[in-house]
Amino acid sequence: MSQEALMTFAGYGKFFLTLFIFIMFYGYAYSIYKRQKTGERDFEKYSNLVLNDSLDSPPLEPRDRK
């Protein structure tokens, strides 16, 4: 591949990669706020992972340990 073709390829690659991540990121942001709003999932409750972190307080979302 010629130098110029390589640079062009890298340029387009960088542009579309950034665009892709941009869309993913804002899509994710939108989905988080939407899920919170519709009550599908409460993200704010995860603050309690810090506030109730003693070993005998019940886990927020218990996990089965075999």
């Binding site: 810090v50 927020l60 996990r63 340990r65």
Partner: peptide, 11 residues
Amino acid sequence: GLRRERAIYVS
């Protein structure tokens, strides 16, 4: 792997 809490805190 040994956690009791399913959710993994942001820290």
